[in-house]
């Protein structure tokens, strides 16, 4: 299977391993990730104001490229995925926004075809669940993670707004727990798994962000987790910064690559 892939700025800098483990795992599972040409940073957060189109154009460019290739658009960073999915939804539901975007894009290129959110946007987790299937993932496991107790940390961007993201039940998600089970480990359920880590407020009010992160860390630790997994570089940063070395926080793709036996291969470097 071939899909369009939007890595995003952080996966090219401080989260290189998130990208590398994703690529290595995809290859091991028979999926080809075709990187979007000349992609631009998604902006990190979706702007809800409906009069802004400039902040949404990088998503539009990636979406229209994937759509032209008739491929789903896959990303692995929670933030990129959130921004792209929300932008795509706006193209489907807000006629005035779509009109202005299409007018602008047409001015940039004569070959532009009108777009109304036709592309399918998928997080890598959805690709694993809906296209490959967790049973196939389980069958491909070479090094079972048996004995590990793992806390899935969703944060906010993967799930919300639920109407748009449509990935899982926003209050009682299970997609990451199901993956953890497929890899042979035991998921640990705790209350703060879908609460915000403090996000970008870490720059402006580090103390507020620290309080949010501590709630997540304390929840996972008191539920008996050995390890927290996330899909978001900012969640990981906030949790590590405020967790000192209480508990390791890793990307879910690192565990996947480890279980599939490709973590040490050249593809993962």
């Amino acid at each position: 299977m071939k899909v369009s892939y939007f890595p995003g700025c952080t996966l090219k800098t401080t989260a290189k391993e998130l990208d590398a483990y994703t690529r290595a795992s995809a290859k091991a599972l028979g999926v080809t990730l075709e990187e979007i040409e000349n992609w631009q940073c998604c902006g990190g957060v979706f702007t809800t104001a409906n009069d802004e189109i400039a902040t949404k154009l990088s998503s539009i460019r990636a979406l229209t490229e994937a759509n032209a290739k008739e491929q789903p658009l896959v990303s692995v960073c929670s933030a990129c995925h959130n921004v792209i999915k929300q932008t795509n939804r706006a193209m489907q539901t807000d006629a005035d926004f779509a009109f202005r975007v299409n007018n602008y894009m047409r001015m940039q290129s004569d070959t532009y075809t009108e777009y109304h959110g036709e592309a399918r946007v998928m997080h890598f987790l959805e690709l694993l669940r809906d296209e490959i299937g967790f049973d196939k993932v389980a069958a491909a496991v070479k090094n079972s993670l048996k004995g590990k107790k793992i806390a899935a940390y969703y944060g906010c961007l993967l799930l919300r707004p639920g109407k748009t993201m449509q990935m899982d039940d926003v209050e009682n998600p299970r997609i990451i727990e199901d993956l953890i089970r497929a890899l042979g480990a035991e998921p640990v359920i705790y209350a703060s798994r879908n609460e915000c880590c403090g996000g970008y407020v870490a720059l402006d009010s580090p103390d507020s962000a620290a309080k949010q992160s501590r709630k997540v860390l304390d929840g996972a630790i008191s539920a008996g987790a050995d390890l927290i997994v996330t899909a978001c570089p900012l969640c990981r940063y906030n949790l590590i910064k405020n967790g000192k070395s209480d508990i390791p926080v890793v990307y879910f793709t690192e565990l996947l690559a480890e279980a599939l036996g490709v973590k040490e291969t050249e593809d993962a470097q």
């Binding site: 800098t13 702007t47 902040t55 940063y237």
Partner: peptide, 14 residues
């Protein structure tokens, strides 16, 4: 250790 994502998000919001 600050990820790129933190800077772009903060600038977009602030």
């Amino acid at each position: 250790d600050v990820p790129q994502q933190l800077l772009v998000s903060a600038f977009r919001k602030y």
